[in-house]
Each structure stands twice: as C-alpha cells, then as structure tokens.
Computed example of a mutant assay.
Amino acid sequence: MNTELTDKSFWANYWESKKGLAFKVPVNHTFYKVIRRITGKNKIESAIELGGFPGYYAIFLKNYFGVNASLFDYYIHPQILHEVLAANQLSENDIPAIEGDIFSYSPKKQYDLVLSCGLIEHFTDTRDIISRHVDFVKPGGSLLITLPNFTGVNGWMQRKFDPENYSKHNIDCMDPKLLADHAKALGLKNVRSCYYGKFTIWLENKAQQPSSVKALFKLIWLTGKIFTKIIPIDSKQLSPYIVLTATK
C-alpha cells in the first residue's frame, strides 16, 4: 500500500493559509513550453489534472488550448475554487472538479492528456502513484508529471529552514532516471525525464523567517539567477523542477 506523507487536514490548512490564489493564469505559466510541445505533437481534446487543486493547469489548458479539462484532487475547497475560476472568467461548469482518493477511485473515462504538478513526491511508492496516473490515460494519450527538485540548492534551503515541509516530500523519487525506469516498466513509450527550469528557490514559511534568513535567501536567489543567465543549463544542483513525459 502506498503511504501518504500528507493527509486531508494538512492540505486544508495549507490552502486556507495561502494568500493571492485567485489570479489570472498567464499564457507563460510554469511548464507552458512542455505543454505546448505536447499539444503540438498530439491531438489533445480532453485532459485531467490530478492532485491539481486549485486547477491552474486545467484552467491553462481550457483557456489557451480549448481543451476540455477536468480537475481531480483529494481535497477541494469550494470557495477557493470558485474564486480562482472567476478570476479566469470560468465557472465550475467549465472545469469539472472531482474530489476523491486516487487509490480507491476508478476513472469513469480516460483522457488525451493526464498531468500532475507536485503530486507524486507526497507518496512513498513512486511506481504505484505513477501507475494511478496511467489508469486515466487513453491508449495513445500523453502523460506529464512534474515535481520539485529538492536534491540541489533549493532542497538545501527546504531542509535547513523548513524541515517540516521538507519531511512531507519523498526525496528519493526526485531522480529523473528512476522516474524514467518506472515509466518504462509500466509500458509507457517515448519516455523523457529531466531536470527542468532556470534557477529559483522558495520557502513556504518565508514570511515567518527572521531577517537574516531572508537576506541569505535573497543572496542565494540572486547569485543563482545570475549564474544560470550566464550558463543557462538544466542541472541537479540548480534546476527547481523535474519533468517526466511519456505516451501510453
């Protein structure tokens, strides 16, 4: 059985503590280049965002690509969802939302694109949680999984200054080769897995940190930004994300 590193109360507290969630999702939203590549190569008419509350990528797909997109999550806050959709000129009828447990839910349909952004790292059995994604994918459909990279500089920040949040993540799964091996073992094709993105760091509890930590944060952030502007490479130490793509 896959062990969850979080529970429903964790996510309720997490989302209720967040400010500024209701914004218009921009055309250059994170991972837009990956999504554009997938939609350019494949006919994507339907999609579902797993573990994606409040549905930014479902909204992105709906508004910029005309995809019939849905949202699935273990925890959905109706008021926050309504506010986020309204900020994007959408309603609950435009983005169907399903609240459920991915380990007990049987998909009622399959989709051309199944994506999750920051889901699989909250479980201990990585191959199993990826297999749950595959259940939602149509034959010939596409899979996109992204997760944070806590094995480099950003991970050091998390471990040092927010160990509580760090402990909610399965660091062992943050390995592109491991993810690719799992995807291939599950029968997926055209597997591509890599570190992704120019340098950045974040702390969920940054506002509560002392000024000395905020100053260190700013110094590391600025140094990393300058370095990756000069040498723009994706790497284990500096890239903030890992991206896995495949077809079924």
Rank of each mutant, 00 (worst) to 15 (best):
G51Y: 01
A87F: 07
P163K: 06
S70A: 15
V153W: 02
K138P: 03
A86H: 12
Q110G: 04
M157P: 05
I130C: 01
I76A: 10
H133I: 05
S70M: 13
E49P: 14
R37D: 15
I59S: 12
V25L: 02
H29Q: 11
S106P: 04
S91Q: 01
L85N: 11
L61D: 07
I120M: 02
P54D: 14
V67R: 10
L71K: 10
D128W: 09
P96H: 06
T146P: 00
G40T: 04
T151F: 06
S104I: 10
I48A: 11
S46D: 07
G40F: 03
S116E: 00
D94N: 09
I129S: 01
Y74K: 14
C117K: 10
D94V: 02
T30N: 14
E164H: 08
F123V: 04
L147H: 00
K43V: 11
I129P: 05
P163E: 06
D135S: 08
R36M: 10
K62M: 09
P107H: 13
A87P: 04
S104L: 14
H82T: 15
Y56A: 08
A69S: 15
F123N: 07
G52S: 13
S142F: 01
K108F: 04
D125P: 08
S70H: 14
I95D: 07
T146Y: 03
L119E: 04
H169F: 08
N149H: 02
V67N: 10
R36P: 04
G66N: 09
E164C: 02
E45N: 15
P78N: 14
D135A: 13
V134H: 02
Y57D: 09
G140E: 05
D73V: 10
V25E: 02
G40R: 04
N68M: 09
P139R: 09
V25D: 00
G40E: 10
P26Q: 14
S91R: 00
S116M: 01
I145D: 06
L85G: 12
Y111M: 08
A86I: 08
V67M: 10
L143S: 00
P96W: 05
S116H: 03
I38D: 00
E121W: 05
D94C: 03
V153P: 00
V134N: 00
G155K: 01
T39G: 06
K62H: 14
V84E: 13
P163F: 06
N165T: 08
N93I: 03
F161R: 02
P96K: 03
L61P: 05
R36W: 09
N154S: 09
N63P: 08
K108L: 10
N63Y: 06
L143P: 00
T39K: 11
K33D: 15
K41R: 15
P107K: 13
E45A: 14
S167W: 01
N68H: 12
S104N: 15
N42Y: 12
N93T: 08
H77F: 13
G140A: 05
Y105R: 01
S106T: 15
Y57V: 08
P139K: 12
S167Q: 03
K33L: 15
G140S: 05
P148W: 01
I38P: 00
P148M: 01
L115Y: 07
A47N: 13
Q110Y: 05
